[in-house]
Amino acid sequence: MTLKSLNFTLLVVNLDNETLSDLAEELNRKRLMAPEFFALTPMVVNIAETSLNIDFLQLRNIVEEHGFILTGITGKVSEQQKQQASEHSIAVLHGSKRQVVNTSPVPEPMEENKEVADVLPTEQDYTVSEVKTKIHTGRVRSGQQIYAKECDLVIRGDVGAGAEVIADGNIHIYGTLRGKALAGAMGDTDAVVFCTVLQPELVSIAGVYKLSDTLPEDMWSTSCSISLEDQNMVFSSLNKI
């Protein structure tokens, strides 16, 4: 037997100042967005900004009732909470944000007028990412689901009503989006959806979503990109840039 260390990307749900029943509601919404995708998805609850006195047993029950698996908690976990969590076999995890690795220990603050060339990274400053873009050629039909794990997704073709395209990164659709597109599925709020013709059942970025009937009317059937600004969805035409 060998012990190895591997990296995983996990879905993190923030328990801000919400109560556990808010959490239940949030999980319910998430699940309804893409029922098959989220079934039995491992999940970490971030208790960083919550001052709640958490009932860990109830937390686990809520997460499991909604079809997720509680992998652990993260955030500002007090000693007492650690103790309580361990009583319910809930791990305490310490996450690191996914970022480009910079070898210089303390990045210099960027000066306003610095020459561009100086700012550009030299080769050795960055480690080469192994993450590729997932490219799917052809229609995605009702009932089908395409998931790009930890990378961007490109669809060359239409995404039919009842179909789901999901990526941890950005989604590019060279065709008509009639089904659901969920970018930043693991919480990346910088993720963007691009599509040639927008007629979706649902678009979501990092869990924030809009259904077809709440979409800005003038964007229907247009080529556009969808991104997040302060938790609000921003639609912008690809033809007006």
Partner: peptide, 12 residues
Amino acid sequence: RDSDRITGMLSS
């Protein structure tokens, strides 16, 4: 819609 679904099944 159902035809779309079944066509997907034919390919998988």
